[in-house]
Amino acid sequence: MSGIEQATFGAGCFWGAEAAFRALPGVVDSRVGYAVEAADEALQIEVVQVDFDPQVLAYSSLIEHFWGLHDPTSVDRQGEHGGVKYRSAIFHTNAVQAEQARVAKEALQESGRLNKPVATVILPLGRFDLADEAHQRYLEKNGLSSCQI
């Protein structure tokens, strides 16, 4: 698929995030798994990896959607799920993504929409480990419409 790009986001439980991203026009595929930060092999975060057509959907629009999927002010916790693996994170694969993520985070912080600091980390993607097949499109496979977080 020529021109298709990837984006990787950690928004707590990956099932709901995957379903929400899949519904966006311009998203051509997605998968859930675990992102490993380039400098720390021990740091594994539940993520959704999204393949998208940047001619239809801008990376910056994906980030805006990401903010609405979870509480970006929560440190290592989303709802009942706690621990580092549920950290709010944007993993980038190039300098353009890193800069757009940084600018979006600053804009959200300065917007006044949140009453606490944005805790989302912006990290280089070292590795993506695909989750078991049972986790892929989990909500869709199980007739669920949302994931409680």
Rank of each mutant, 00 (worst) to 15 (best):
A98H: 11
V84R: 15
A95K: 12
N94V: 09
A119K: 10
A98G: 09
A89H: 07
G83D: 01
R113H: 08
K85W: 04
L114R: 09
A98S: 13
R102Q: 11
V118H: 03
Q100M: 13
G112V: 02
V84Y: 01
H81V: 02
Q109K: 06
E80A: 11
G112P: 10
V121W: 03
E110I: 01
V118Y: 04
G82N: 10
A98K: 13
P117R: 13
Q109F: 07
G112Q: 05
E99M: 12
V96G: 05
V103Y: 03
A107G: 04
A119G: 08
A89N: 05
G112R: 07
K85G: 01
R87P: 00
R102S: 14
N115I: 01
S88Q: 09
R102E: 14
S111C: 06
H92V: 13
E99I: 00
P117L: 11
G83I: 11
V84D: 04
P117D: 14
A101K: 02
T93R: 14
K116G: 04
Q97A: 06
V96Q: 14
E80I: 08
R113T: 00
R87A: 10
P117E: 14
P117G: 13
Y86M: 11
G112Y: 08
A107K: 15
R113D: 08
Q109M: 12
N115E: 12
E99G: 04
S111V: 00
S88T: 00
V103S: 05
A101F: 04
S88W: 01
N94C: 06
E99R: 15
K105C: 08
K85N: 11
Q97N: 13
V103F: 07
V118D: 03
S88K: 00
Y86S: 08
E106Q: 14
V121L: 14
E99W: 03
R102A: 14
V96D: 11
R102T: 13
F91S: 04
Q100G: 03
T93M: 08
A98N: 13
P117W: 07
I90N: 02
T93L: 13
V118G: 00
F91W: 09
E106A: 15
A89P: 10
P117A: 12
E80W: 00
R87I: 03
A104M: 11
K85I: 03
P117C: 04
G83K: 10
N94F: 09
A104S: 15
H81A: 09
A89S: 14
V103Q: 13
A95Y: 03
L114T: 00
A101P: 08
K105M: 07
Q109R: 09
E80R: 14
E99P: 03
Y86H: 05
I90H: 02
A98F: 07
S88R: 00
S88E: 09
V96H: 11
Q97E: 10
K116S: 13
H92C: 10
G83S: 09
H81Y: 11
V96L: 09
G83F: 07
E106K: 13
Y86D: 12
A98Y: 06
E106R: 14
H92I: 01
R102P: 02
V84N: 09
V103H: 07
F91Q: 02
I90V: 15
Q97W: 07
I90C: 10
N94G: 15
V84A: 10
V118I: 12
H81N: 15
G83C: 06
N115L: 08
A95E: 15
K105S: 06
A107P: 02
K85E: 14
